[in-house]
Design a protein around this nucleic acid. Sequence first.
DNA 1: CGCGGCTTTGATGTTCATCAAGTAAAGTGG
DNA 2: CCACTTTACTTGATGAACATCAAAGCCGCG
Lengths: 246, 246
Amino acid sequence: MSSALDREKSCFEKQKQTQCSLENCVECGLRSSVFSSLSHLELGELSDGKDLLVEPRGVVVAKQGDAVKNFIFLRKGLAKLSRRTEDGHEQIIGIARPRDFVGLLSLFSSPVYQYTISTIEDSEFCIVDFKVIEKMVMENGVFARQLLEKMSLVADRLLSTRLELNSRQLRGRIAYIIIMFSVDIYQSDTFNLPISRKEIGDLIDMRVENVIRILSEFRKDGIIKIEGTQIEIVNLPMLERIMQHG
Amino acid sequence: MSSALDREKSCFEKQKQTQCSLENCVECGLRSSVFSSLSHLELGELSDGKDLLVEPRGVVVAKQGDAVKNFIFLRKGLAKLSRRTEDGHEQIIGIARPRDFVGLLSLFSSPVYQYTISTIEDSEFCIVDFKVIEKMVMENGVFARQLLEKMSLVADRLLSTRLELNSRQLRGRIAYIIIMFSVDIYQSDTFNLPISRKEIGDLIDMRVENVIRILSEFRKDGIIKIEGTQIEIVNLPMLERIMQHG
DNA sequence: CGCGGCTTTGATGTTCATCAAGTAAAGTGG
DNA sequence: CCACTTTACTTGATGAACATCAAAGCCGCG
C-alpha cells in the first residue's frame, strides 16, 4: 500500500481529472431525496459549485481535526467513519453507504471533523462547498426541514447500532454485523467483507483474535462459509438466533 | 411510590395548573440560544402555543412508541432517555440536562418516540406543538440553521459518550460517569446521584453488583466518599487517571 | 530475501456476569 | 401500628467470557 503522501497526491489528481463531470446535479439519478425540494435554479447552483471525487479503496477523504469546508455526499462505494481514542487505538463509528452525507454530524456543530472518513471500497463522492448548502438552508425551508430529517435518521442509526452492539456479547455482535453487511449494505447472502478482521474488531469493540475465532467457529458449525474476505451466509435463521439471543 | 395511573393524573393536573405561567417566552431567562433568532412576533407565537409542565422525580414524560406531537424543552431538572432492548432489559441512552431538547433526535425523523423520557429530578419542561416549530423552520432560515447545529451537538454528545464508555472497562466507566455528573451536570465535587445503582448499570452497561463493588472499592481507596446517594469526590486526579487508563 | 502487516490457533490469566444470601429501607394491607 | 411484601443495596464465591501472550503461516512490497 502507498504512503499517506502518495495517497493524498493521487487524490488531488483524480479530483482535478474528474472535476468537470459529465453529470450535473439536475439530471443526477443518484441525487439524494433531500434535494428534492430544490428548484431548478438551486440545483444549477449546486452543480456549479460541486466537485466529483473518485477514490479507490483505502483513501482518507477527511481527517479527524481537519477543517470542515465541504458537504460530502457518498454517491457510490462505502466509507468508514473512525476516530482515534485517547489511548491511541482506532475505533470505527459506523459504515457510510451510498446516498449518505458523510460527516453530516460534524457539519453544523463543529469547525473540524470529529471523525476520520476513509473509503473501504472504490467510491465516488460529490463535494459541495458548505456555504452553498448553508445558503440553501437559510433560503429554502423545505430543504432545511429535510436536512433535519436526514440528520436525525443518520444520528439515530449510528446510535442505535452502537446500543445494539453494546448489549450483546461477542458471538451476537459478529452475527449482527454479518447480517448488517448482508441485509443493509449488499442485499445478498454472499458478499466480500470490505474491512479486515482487525477493523471488524475496531467496529464492534473486540480483539482480532476473537473475531477470527468466532468466524471460524461459525464456519465449523456450518452457519457461514468464508474464503478470505468472501462470506456466504448458509444458515441465516441460526445466525439470526445467535444475533438475538447470545 | 404511586401507581402509573396516579402519576399520569397528577401530571395532567399540574399541566393545567401551570399552563398559564407567569413567564412567557419573550422574557424567559432560560430560553435556549436556539431561539435567539426568533422575532418578537415569533416568540409571541411560541408563548401562545406553549405549556409549562412541572413534574416531580420519577415521572414518564414520553414513552417509547408514543406519537411525537410536541417539542419538549427541559427548563430545569434532569431527565433520562432510555429504551427497552429486545430481550427486555432497560438501557439508558443518556441524561438530558437543562436547556436540552429532549427527544430532539426522534423529532424530525420518526412519527413515534424511539426512547422513553423520564424525570430523574424534579423538573420543568416547556412543551410546544411540533407544528409551530416546523413552521418556524420553514420560515426562518437562521432558526433552522441553529436547530441543525443543536441537533448535531446533541447527537454528537450522545454518540461520543457511548463510544467513550465502550472502550473502557468497568472501573474506567464508573470513573467516567462520576466525573460526568460532577463536572458536566452539577459543577461540584459533592452531589446527589439522581439515579440508582441499577440505573448506573443500565447507563454504562454493567451489572448492579459490579457497580456497587467498584463504588465500594473507590470508597475504600479514599477516592470518593459515599453515603447513600450522596457522593463526594476526594481524589479527583486519581479518579481521572482511572477514567483515562482503566 | 527479509520485513512488516494480516491472519490463524493454542495456552493462560484477568475481568466480569451469575448465583446465592443477607441487610436495610420503604411501601402495603389488616 | 405491626406483620408482610417488595425493592434497593451489599458482599462473597464460582464459572464463563474475554483479553492477552506466544508462535507460526501467509502475502505483498521494497
